[in-house]
């Protein structure tokens, strides 16, 4: 039996050479246990060593292999060729991000936004708290449940790629950054809520979201950023009305 093959049309962009991205089609052997990332690796090994793409773990935890597969943001290490075979598979760089080369996008914007929401535990006594057994900041399992889902984010940026609002308004803080801010706000050990809220509650934060919900559809980790955004809208609105009605009140 002749070897089965599959076509992969891959976006190429070589800065300095190409004026705009073009697509190049490769025909490669088909294996039903291959993922799109394997196919790209095959092309890099056998056809064109200059093909550039990011990956690291090959097991859906590092979040670096996100690309558009047939127009949908996917982790390419989790996108099986068998779900597309025998049709050609179109692989493009993540939408809504500037392309650096081939399938590699510029993630600086996201990295800055991530830093802005301070996604780490903030406490006054972090430095002074005694270290050692018995001095951990303890948490009950129910308290972990409050934020667990939102802590699963692997910063793959698929949600930014899927978000039409981010596509139109690049200043939008975006799904994952807000979900992570929410994750730390919900953490019983954290005291940094008042530092994060001005950032996520600003006009470039949650209020840009028109509740399209695509972020939650494409998220490979079921983080559900859309719900984090809705919950933050509710919390901010409560705080806002409270501060208007009871300006003397503190929380």
């Amino acid at each position: 039996m002749a070897e089965r093959t599959i076509g992969l049309s891959v976006t190429r962009f070589r800065p300095g050479e190409d004026r705009q991205p073009v697509s190049q089609t490769f025909t490669i052997p088909y294996h039903d246990d291959w993922v799109v990332l394997d196919a790209l690796q095959y092309i890099k090994d056998r056809h064109d060593g200059s093909l550039s793409f990011r990956w690291s773990c090959h097991m859906g935890v590092c979040g670096s292999c996100g690309m558009m597969v047939n127009g949908v943001p996917k982790l390419t290490c989790a996108a099986f060729l068998r779900d597309y075979f025998p049709n050609e598979v179109r692989v493009e760089p993540l939408a809504n991000f500037p392309v650096i080369r081939d399938l590699v996008v510029d993630i600086d914007d996201f990295m800055h936004k991530l830093a802005e929401v301070k996604p780490y535990i903030i406490r006054d006594d972090l430095e002074t708290a005694p270290v050692g057994f018995g001095h951990e900041f303890r948490q009950a399992p129910e308290e972990v449940d409050d934020y667990r889902q939102f802590s699963m984010c692997i910063n793959c940026m698929l949600c930014y790629s899927a978000c039409p609002v981010y596509g139109m308004e690049p200043r939008f803080l975006g799904p994952a950054a807000i979900a992570l801010a929410h994750r730390y706000n919900m953490d019983s050990r954290d005291q940094g809520r008042n530092e994060r809220m001005p950032v996520i509650g600003s006009s470039e934060g949650i209020w840009e979201c028109t509740y399209i919900g695509e972020c939650s559809v494409v998220c490979p980790k079921n983080v559900d950023p859309a719900s984090a955004i809705q919950r933050t809208k509710l919390a901010t609105t409560n705080d806002w009305f409270r501060s208007i009605l009871m300006p003397w009140g503190k929380r």
Binding site: E195, S203, D239, W240
Partner: peptide
């Protein structure tokens, strides 16, 4: 309490 730059709420 914190302040935000908008009356969106």
């Amino acid at each position: 309490m914190y302040k935000i730059n908008t009356i969106e709420p």
